[in-house]
Amino acid sequence: LVGFSFLREFGVLLAAILLAGRSASAFAAQIGSMKSNEEIDAIRTLGLSPIELLVLPRVLAMLITLPILTFVGMLSGIAGGLVVCVLALDISPTMFFNIMARDIAVSHFLVGLSKAPVFAFIIAVIGCLEGFKVSGSAQSVGEHTTSSVVQAIFMVILLDAIAALFFMEMGW
C-alpha cells in the first residue's frame, strides 16, 4: 500500500501542492509587482516579449523542478513506510524491499512521474497568468497572488483525479 500510493499518487500530489502554494504565488507576485510598476510596459517598449522573458524561464524551471521533487517525495514516502514497518510491524527492511519488488510494478512509478510535468506546466502558467492580470495597485497584487494559489491547487487536484480515472480505465 505504501509503495503503490506514494509512487502513483502521494509523491507527485504532495510535491505539486507545495509548489503550487510556493511558486504560483511567487510568480504572480513578481510579475504582478512588475506590472504595477509598469516594468512590463518598459519591456514591451524595448521590443522584447514579456512572455519569452518572464514566463518561459519560469515554466522551464518548473518542468525541471517538479519531477525531481516528485522523485524525492516518492523516496521519502517509501522511507517513511519502511520506518513504520520496521518499528511498528516488525517487518525487516529486507522483507519490505522484497515485497515491494514483488508486488509493485515499475509502471506505478512511471504513472506518478508522468503527472509531474503536466502539473508543473499548469502551476507555472496559472501563476504567471494571474501576475499579468494585476491592475496596478498593491491590493490587486495580493488578490491575484491569493487567486493563483487557489486556482493552481484546485487544478492540480482536479487533474490528478482525471488522471487517476484515465489510468484506471486504461488498466495502467
Rank of each mutant, 00 (worst) to 15 (best):
V2K: 03
G3L: 00
S5Q: 13
F6M: 07
F6I: 03
E9Y: 15
E9T: 15
G11I: 14
V12K: 13
V12F: 10
A15S: 15
A16L: 11
A16Y: 07
A16W: 04
I17S: 03
L18Q: 00
A20N: 12
A20F: 10
G21M: 06
R22D: 09
A24T: 13
A26R: 08
Q30S: 10
Q30D: 07
Q30F: 01
S33D: 03
E38F: 01
E39L: 10
E39G: 06
D41R: 05
R44H: 11
T45N: 09
G47T: 09
G47R: 05
L48D: 10
L48G: 10
L48A: 14
L48V: 00
P50I: 02
I51T: 12
L54M: 10
R58G: 00
R58Q: 02
L60I: 13
M62K: 10
I64Q: 13
T65Q: 00
T65E: 00
L66E: 11
P67E: 05
V72Y: 09
V72T: 07
G73T: 04
M74G: 06
M74P: 01
I78G: 05
I78V: 15
I78K: 08
I78P: 09
I78S: 07
A79D: 03
G81E: 08
G81S: 03
G81H: 04
C85Y: 13
C85E: 11
L87I: 02
L87Q: 06
L89I: 04
L89A: 05
M95Y: 12
M95T: 11
M95D: 13
F96M: 09
F96K: 00
F97P: 06
F97Q: 08
M100S: 13
M100F: 01
A101F: 01
A101N: 07
D103W: 00
A105W: 04
A105R: 02
S107W: 06
F109M: 13
F109H: 05
L110D: 04
L110K: 11
V111E: 08
G112T: 11
S114V: 05
P117V: 12
P117W: 11
P117C: 08
V118R: 14
F119Y: 15
A120Y: 14
F121H: 12
A124L: 11
I126V: 15
I126D: 01
C128P: 08
C128D: 02
C128R: 00
L129H: 14
E130N: 11
G131T: 09
F132E: 04
K133V: 06
V134N: 08
S135L: 07
G136N: 07
Q139I: 04
Q139K: 10
V141M: 05
G142V: 05
H144N: 02
H144M: 08
T146E: 06
S147K: 04
S148K: 01
Q151A: 14
Q151T: 14
F154Y: 10
M155G: 04
M155Q: 12
M155K: 12
V156W: 06
I157W: 03
I157Y: 00
L158M: 14
L158P: 03
D160K: 10
A161I: 08
I162P: 01
A163G: 14
F167V: 15
M168S: 14
M168F: 04
E169H: 15
M170I: 05
G171H: 05
W172F: 02
